[in-house]
């Protein structure tokens, strides 16, 4: 077979060296001749291999470069603003910065994603307690917004939700708390998204109107804090906080699911006491987060 292939080749006229169509033609002629003489096996393996290799390398390298640039652009398209009181990208945002803290108030850090179902469980079990401690100044409450569900399902809806919540906070913390609650009570099924109409509707329900609502809408549309939200997700991921929710008090990871009554109900009183005093028993410390570093 190999012999007849060589023969078929040798019989072909030499390429004219003009390039373009004529060399294309002569190559095709060569291929045809080879195919005739060797029963359909005349395609040059090196040529096919080179084509496949080039296509594969272009696809892989091109894809990686495209994704790198695209991911950077996606963020830079949004705003790069830092929320009030935040000194740098990747740092937490204090939700009760307008409240005078009690002396020695512990720092509570919460890492959350508005679309994460377990965050909703945390919120329904202890959200009210956390909010009360924060508004009374009994703890310094720091949020780190994460985008775990975006990573799992694609898109940037969690990132938008956090951005929009920070936009609401510009109007005042009382609106932020309401918006925070509305996002959780209306959380879409895992993998589904909040709509823009919902985001706006929640802002109205939280009490924004007139110019405050217009300012919020502009902030939401511009994605003013998108870059910041990405930065807290990245920074916390690198610090070992990969899942949500994560709760820390004075940098100790809280096993919040351990706070339940003998009837199996969430024990909000015990939870509040632990956060307020900053003391945890051994079983109240999360082992899942033992290697994580709280960034608050």
């Amino acid at each position: 077979m190999a012999k007849s292939k060589t023969k078929a080749r040798a019989q072909q006229p030499r390429p004219q060296g003009k390039g373009g169509a004529s060399s294309q033609q002569s190559r095709q002629a060569k291929i045809d001749a080879a195919r005739k003489s060797s029963g359909g096996t005349g395609v040059n393996k090196i040529v096919v291999g080179s084509i496949v290799a080039v296509v594969a390398i272009v696809a892989i390298v091109g894809g990686v470069i495209f994704n790198s640039i695209h991911q950077k652009n996606q963020v830079s398209q949004g705003g790069k603003a830092l929320p009030a009181g935040v000194s740098a990208m990747g740092k937490g945002w204090q939700a009760n910065q307008d409240v005078k803290l009690v002396a020695g108030a512990p720092t509570v850090a919460i890492y959350e994603d508005f679309r994460c179902p377990i965050c909703k469980q945390l919120e329904s079990a202890f959200g009210e307690s956390i909010q009360q401690l924060a508004t009374e100044g009994k703890v310094k409450l720091v949020y780190f917004f994460k985008t775990v569900i975006d990573s799992n399902y694609g898109g940037d809806n969690s990132q938008q939700a956090a951005n929009n919540a920070l936009c609401v906070a510009e109007a005042g913390s009382q609106y932020f708390w309401k918006y925070h609650n509305l996002l959780y009570t209306n959380q879409p099924d895992e993998g589904s998204t909040f709509t823009n109409a919902q985001f706006t509707q929640f802002a109205k329900q939280a009490g924004l109107s007139g110019t405050a609502l217009d300012t919020w809408q502009k902030c939401a549309d511009a994605g003013k804090y998108m870059n910041y939200v990405k930065s807290t997700d990245d920074a916390s991921y690198k610090a070992g906080i990969t899942g949500t929710p994560a709760v820390f008090v004075n940098h100790k990871p809280v096993n919040w699911q351990a706070f339940s009554t003998s009837a199996g109900q969430p024990d909000a009183a015990a939870f509040s006491k632990a956060l307020e005093t900053g003391t945890l028993s051994q079983s109240q410390i999360s082992t899942d987060l033992k290697n994580a570093k709280d960034l608050s």
Binding site: G63, N67, H70, Q71, D150, S151, N152, Y153, G154, Y237, K238, T242
Partner: peptide
């Protein structure tokens, strides 16, 4: 996975073998 590169990156990071 190809439509969600950020998620694919997170999945690989989750193994904690390679630098971030």
């Amino acid at each position: 996975k190809v439509g969600n590169p950020a998620g694919a990156a997170r999945a690989v990071q989750g193994y904690r073998i390679m630098p971030y």
